[in-house]
Every structure is written in structure tokens, then in C-alpha cells.
């Protein structure tokens, strides 16, 4: 880890000014990504501004019945919130399926959205990586890519977005509030995450020094019946191979409302708009579920190592929908 300076921000404006004015500075929140990647020499700031003392915490009900999550609320705090557990179970489940209890006590919600890809080549400074060093090439395309994405990829990067909770937030149309030198901004979660395209090093639309202040989840009655289904090799403490965040409401056997997003298979938290299009108004059942899954994965571009993900993702979609319609749970 290179030499760094450390300062503790007393107010958001000071933190934003400091980081905005120095491209070699970074915010430090939970540190679970920042310190890890600093030690790997993947991130190379010279200055860390600790924002943990800023009053950006709390999980509250918004006036519209939605949810307002402070950017510095810890994953564990949000998951434990009765409000979240009751009204947005998919968020609580996604949070508690991620990382480990210790990491969830550390990691902030804002930091979770800002976490970097878990591609081993990105983390290994000896390997070419367009995301880390634009123009050097993508080692994963021809390399070991079992965990990599099949959706939203480009020839320049196929790294999977690692977040679980962002998948749930994507399903529920969350908005991300920021504060930067341009003032306050709000991004829809879909716009907040960028697919790699020709610019894999750009993961978000944020300018340097723009600080996430809050995450807002709009009121969503459908979310009361929701779940997060995560498939992985190990039973815990592992990133998803495939995951699905799903919320659903039925009227007389017909799908009245549905939200579906995928994790582990795409370069960003993947809102399954196509599948939702098939499902909305359809009769709930294996037939419509299978068709929705097929349509969503139709453009999948797997590698030799991760071809199984295309089929697995479809099965996960079907299982999530079946579980919700049966009002049961996977065991």
C-alpha cells in the first residue's frame, strides 16, 4: 500500500471540496473495498478523506411511504431495520446474503454501490485490465471466466457487478442521491451503473468527488412479497454465481405487478425489463415464467467457462417466480 494522508471530514461540504479538488484523493467510508484495493495497488489515491463521521446515516420512512437510506448506514443496520424487513424483504435478504457479518457491519450502503468488480484480473496488477488501466486489454475474455458476466458485456470487459443489494435496489427502482461540485443530483439506479462498452473504467456517471448522500426506494406495495434468491458454490460468504431479486403481486392468478433483477450474470445490477414485459398481465405459471426467462437471456454472450450461467439464470428466474407465487420459500 502506498503512502497516504488521512483526514477526517466534519462536514460533507468540506469532504466534497477536498476530494473534488484533488484527483488523487478518495473518500473513505467502510473501507472494505478502498483499503483492500489500496493494498493491492489497484486503487492509488494519495489522500483519504474519512467521511464516517458525517450525518448521513439512518433508515427512515419517506413521506411517500418509501424508504430513505443514509449513504453511511451500514449494511447490517439496514438489513436489521424492521421497516425494511417488513416492507422490502428483498432488500434485507439481499443484504444478509452478501459478504459476512463483519463486513456488513463495516460496509456502508453508499460504498456498496461504489464497490469495484471482483474480477481477479482487475485485482491483479500483473494482468492487463481495461477497467484498471484503459487500453491494456481484457484478460478475462480469453482467461478463466467462470464467474464472469453473460449480459451487458463488451469485448473490453466482462466483469460481473458484485453487489447483492444493488440487485434488489434495481428491481425496486431506487434512486441515488449525490452531492458534488455541481450541486445535488439524483440518478435512477439503472442510470447509476454503467455497462462497460468502450469505457469499462467508467463504472458510474459520478464525477470525481461526488458523494452519495442517500438511497431512496419509492413506495412499492409489491415489494412486500419479494425475495432474493442467490445461487453460489459455497453456502455463505461468496459472491453470487446467479441471483435474482423478485417481487410479485397476483390478481386472480394473473401477474398484476412484477419486479425482477438479476445479479452475478451481468456487468451491472441487471433489471430484467424484458422478462417483466412478458410476465406483466400473463397468467402466473411455469409457462410464462420459462418464456420470461428465455427472453431475458436471449442476448446472453457467454464464454467457454461460464456458458452454464445462461441456463442457470433462467432456472433461477423461474424458481424465484415459482417460489413467490407459491408464497413459499426455497428451503
Amino acid at each position: 500500500m502506498r503512502l497516504i494522508t488521512y483526514s477526517r471530514a466534519a462536514d460533507a461540504a468540506g469532504a466534497i471540496t477536498t476530494v473534488s479538488s484533488d484527483p488523487t484523493s478518495d473518500f473513505l467510508a467502510g473501507g472494505t473495498t478502498e483499503i483492500d484495493l489500496l493494498r493491492q495497488n489497484v486503487l492509488t489515491p494519495r489522500r483519504l478523506v474519512d467521511i464516517n463521521a458525517l450525518p448521513l446515516t439512518g433508515v427512515e420512512q419517506a413521506p411517500d411511504g418509501g424508504l430513505r437510506i443514509g449513504a453511511l448506514a451500514r449494511m447490517s443496520e439496514v438489513a436489521a431495520s424492521p421497516l425494511v424487513r417488513e416492507r422490502f424483504p428483498v432488500i434485507a435478504e439481499a443484504l444478509e446474503s452478501g459478504a459476512s457479518p463483519q463486513l456488513r457491519n463495516m460496509a456502508s450502503m453508499g460504498g456498496n454501490l461504489m464497490q469495484r468488480v471482483r474480477c481477479p484480473y482487475y485485482r491483479d496488477t500483473a494482468s492487463p485490465c481495461n477497467r484498471r488501466e484503459p487500453g491494456t486489454g481484457c484478460s478475462a475474455v480469453e482467461g478463466f471466466s467462470r464467474g464472469h458476466a453473460v449480459l451487458g458485456t463488451s469485448e473490453h470487459c466482462i466483469a460481473t457487478h458484485p453487489s447483492d443489494v444493488a440487485v434488489a435496489l434495481a428491481a425496486l427502482d431506487a434512486r441515488v442521491h449525490t452531492h458534488g461540485s455541481r450541486g445535488e443530483q439524483t440518478y435512477s439506479i439503472d442510470d447509476f451503473f454503467l455497462t462497460p462498452g468502450h469505457t469499462p473504467h467508467r463504472e458510474h456517471p459520478l464525477e470525481h468527488g461526488e458523494l452519495i448522500t442517500a438511497i431512496e426506494v419509492p413506495s412499492s406495495p409489491v415489494a412486500r412479497r419479494s425475495l432474493y434468491l442467490k445461487v453460489r458454490d459455497r453456502e455463505s460468504y461468496e459472491f453470487a454465481l446467479v441471483s435474482a431479486a423478485c417481487a410479485l403481486s397476483l390478481v386472480d392468478g394473473t401477474i398484476a405487478d412484477v419486479r425482477l433483477a438479476l445479479g452475478g450474470v451481468a456487468t451491472k445490477p441487471w433489471r430484467a425489463h424484458r422478462a417483466e414485459g412478458v410476465l406483466l398481465g400473463a397468467e402466473a405459471g411455469r409457462e410464462s415464467f420459462t418464456e420470461a426467462a428465455r427472453v431475458e437471456l436471449a442476448d446472453a454472450r457467454p464464454t467457454a467457462n461460464n456458458a452454464f450461467k445462461t441456463g442457470l439464470a433462467q432456472r433461477v428466474i423461474v424458481r424465484a417466480l415459482e417460489t413467490l407465487t407459491a408464497n413459499g420459500r426455497t428451503s
Binding site: 468540506g14 471540496t17 494519495r46
Partner: peptide
């Protein structure tokens, strides 16, 4: 640049 203080923040290190 390492020794400059950020505005309003007490910057410590890198030593």
C-alpha cells in the same frame, strides 16, 4: 501535494 492541507480538514501523514 502530499503535505498540503485540504481546505478545512486536518490532514495527517503520510509519514
Amino acid at each position: 501535494s502530499l503535505t498540503e492541507r485540504g481546505p478545512g480538514l486536518e490532514e495527517r501523514g503520510p509519514g
